[in-house]
Every structure is written in structure tokens, then in C-alpha cells.
């Protein structure tokens, strides 16, 4: 267990490509941080820099009170769960878990006790003598977890550990990983491209885009006050509606409709979450419905406002819907972003 402290860390490849722009952050003891972003955003690179699998171009990385920039991965007191599990195919489950301990000079008894404990925790006990090739995907995933747990590392690293599992198993493992991490009270960094995983698991989320950290915050902060149009559209399903609008006087104009809301004059991007919109006969914004997606408990209404794509998420009341509807929303549901930079205003 340890804190992680990162100062101006960056990664530039020899060909000049900047994979990670200078970033600074701290991770508290026992905290679970999720790095989320589209593929190629640098989240895995950042994680691998912490692991020591990628060189750090500039900056300082501390785990606990040590600067670990130039330490080998094995010396950083970390454990990592890989996307494809990376189990040693020629070793049994027990040996896979024991290998890292053995190399750190643990005695036979210590190893046996640790492996046993981890196996119980992950219900792997009956599988200890099997080879990885004889396990299902979910079981392999557990072994990879076990291999990390037995080591009692200062820091857990997860690199998209659930992306190879089917939806049901993914949900189950999500809960399990979170529980384990809480129980062991270990600091963890978790990389995923799945915003649902990020929202459900994280103490804090780091949203990355094009090698930069766009926003750091708790899941509800990220959801309620996204720092940019990128964060707004990446987090949340279906994503936040973003429409071009104009600030005039103390009003925001969307096409012909006006909403009174403090706003500087000029072009803005207006963000509204689909679930914060209601259908109302007294609504202010006309909505042209084109398609209804039934989700059971709710419906997604696809259509246009002022000629721009717009989605509404509304409770399913089985009512027949006309093609032309009116929308209403509270003023606190409005997010304003700079039309050019995408930054929150």
C-alpha cells in the first residue's frame, strides 16, 4: 500500500511522437484510479510507464517515498493484470501465482500460505494444478488476479483486464475486482476504454484524450460537470447531446428557440444529457422525432432540434408519440462549452 505521486511525467517516442503530454497527479493510499479514454489516447502508455515497461521521457514518478523512474519493473513493488492475462502457459495455476514470490525470496511455507489464501479468495482452489490452457476465460482472469494478489504489492495495475470477457462475466468481475481492492485496501490504477467500468469502479476517473489528461474527478463530478465537450461526449451512455448555439444578450439561441441563461455573446456549444430532458406540452424547444429505440424500462428518442441530431431518454409509458414534440429541461441541465476549444464555460 502506498501513495503514487507523479510530476510532469511525459513520453516522447524516438520518432518524435508525443504519446503522453506532461501530466502531474497524486494518488492517495488505497484509492482506485481509472484511466479512461478512446484507443490511442495514451492511457495504456501512462500505465506502462508506471509499471516500468515503457521508459519515462521526462518527469518524476514516485511510488511510496521512492523515485522509481530508473528502477526495473521487478523492483517497483507493483503487480499488473494484463489484457490477455499473460499467464505462463507452461506453469500450473499454483506455479503461476508463486513465481513472483519465489523470485523475491519468500520461503516455501510463505508461498504456499499466500497461494492458498489467494486461491480461496478467488475460488481457484480446485484448479491449482491445471495449466492455463485448461481454463476458461473467466478462470484465467482470476488466476491473473491471484498472481497479483499474492504479491501484496504497493500498487496494483490493471490494463483493460475485462475486455476479453463476455458481457455477463465482465459485469460480475467488475464487482469482484472492486470488492477485492477495497478489502485489500491496495492502491490501484485501472485502464479501460469502457466508460461504464470507469463510472462504476473508480474513486476518481482520469479522462484522457490525445495524450492529455482532460479531466480528473470523481465519477459524479465527471458526469455532472464535464470539463470539455470531449469528456461530455465520452462519459455517459447515450452520450450528452451537443448542439451549436449562440449567446445573445442573456439568452442562448438554438435555431429559433431561446433559453434564458447567462451567457457571453458569441458561438457556444450547448450540452444536454438525454436523461435530463422531458417531453412536455409546455416545452420550449420543438423536437422532430425520427426513430424510437425501445430499451424496456425507457425509450431513446432520436430526432432533431433546429436541424441538429438530438437524443432524448424518456421513461417508457407506452404512449403513442407524435412526430413533432416539445422538449423541456431544467436550467441546471445545461452545460455550456466554448464552440472553438470545447472547454467548459
Amino acid at each position: 500500500m502506498a501513495t503514487v505521486s507523479v510530476t510532469d511525467i511525459s513520453k516522447t517516442y524516438p520518432n518524435g511522437a508525443q504519446a503522453v503530454h506532461p501530466a502531474s497527479f497524486d494518488i492517495a493510499d488505497g484509492e482506485l484510479i481509472v484511466l479512461v479514454g478512446p484507443s490511442g489516447c495514451g492511457k495504456s502508455t501512462l500505465l506502462r510507464m508506471v509499471a516500468g515497461l515503457e521508459d519515462i521521457t521526462t518527469g518524476d514518478l514516485r511510488i511510496g517515498d521512492r523515485v522509481v523512474n530508473n528502477l526495473d519493473p521487478a523492483e517497483r513493488d507493483i503487480a499488473m493484470v494484463f489484457q490477455n492475462y499473460a499467464l505462463y502457459p507452461h506453469m500450473s495455476v499454483a506455479k503461476n501465482m508463486a513465481y513472483g514470490l519465489k523470485n523475491r525470496g519468500a520461503t516455501k511455507d510463505q508461498i504456499a500460505a499466500k497461494v492458498d489464501e489467494a486461491a480461496k479468495m478467488l475460488s481457484l482452489t480446485p484448479l491449482l494444478d491445471r495449466r492455463p490452457s485448461q481454463l476458461s476465460g473467466g478462470q484465467r482472469q482470476r488466476v491473473a488476479m491471484g498472481r497479483a494478489i499474492v504479491r501484496d504489492p504497493a500498487l496494483f495495475l490493471f490494463d483493460e483486464p475485462l475486455s476479453n470477457l463476455d458481457a455477463k462475466l465482465r459485469h460480475q468481475m467488475r464487482v469482484e475486482i472492486r470488492n477485492l481492492q477495497r478489502r485489500l485496501n491496495v492502491t490501484a490504477m485501472y485502464v479501460t476504454h469502457d466508460q461504464v467500468e470507469a463510472m462504476t469502479m473508480a474513486d476518481r476517473i482520469f479522462v484522457l484524450n490525445a495524450g492529455k489528461i482532460e479531466q480528473i474527478g470523481t465519477p459524479s463530478e465527471i458526469y455532472r460537470t464535464p470539463a470539455s465537450t470531449f469528456v461530455a461526449s465520452f462519459m455517459g451512455a447515450p452520450p450528452m447531446n451537443l448542439v451549436s448555439a449562440k449567446g445573445v444578450g442573456r439568452q442562448v439561441l438554438i435555431g429559433d428557440s431561446a433559453i434564458s441563461h447567462p451567457c457571453a455573446d458569441g458561438d457556444v456549444t450547448l450540452g444536454i444529457r438525454p436523461e435530463q430532458v422531458t417531453l412536455s406540452d409546455t416545452g420550449t424547444i420543438p423536437f422532430k422525432l425520427t426513430l424510437v429505440e425501445e430499451l424496456g424500462a425507457s425509450r431513446l428518442l432520436h430526432g432533431k432540434i433546429a436541424g441538429q441530431d438530438f437524443v432524448v431518454n424518456t421513461p417508457n409509458d407506452d404512449a403513442a408519440l407524435a412526430d413533432d414534440l416539445l422538449l423541456d429541461f431544467g436550467l441546471d441541465a445545461l452545460h455550456l462549452f466554448d464552440a472553438l476549444t470545447g472547454q467548459r464555460l
Binding site: A51, G52, L53, D72, P73, A74, E75, I78, A79, M80, F82, A86, L87, Y88, Y99, G100, N103, R147
Partner: peptide, 8 residues
């Protein structure tokens, strides 16, 4: 890479 983490 897993080996890299497990063994110096």
C-alpha cells in the same frame, strides 16, 4: 512483460 515484473 509479466515476467519482467515478476523477476529482476
Amino acid at each position: 512483460e509479466a515476467a519482467l515484473i515478476d523477476n529482476k
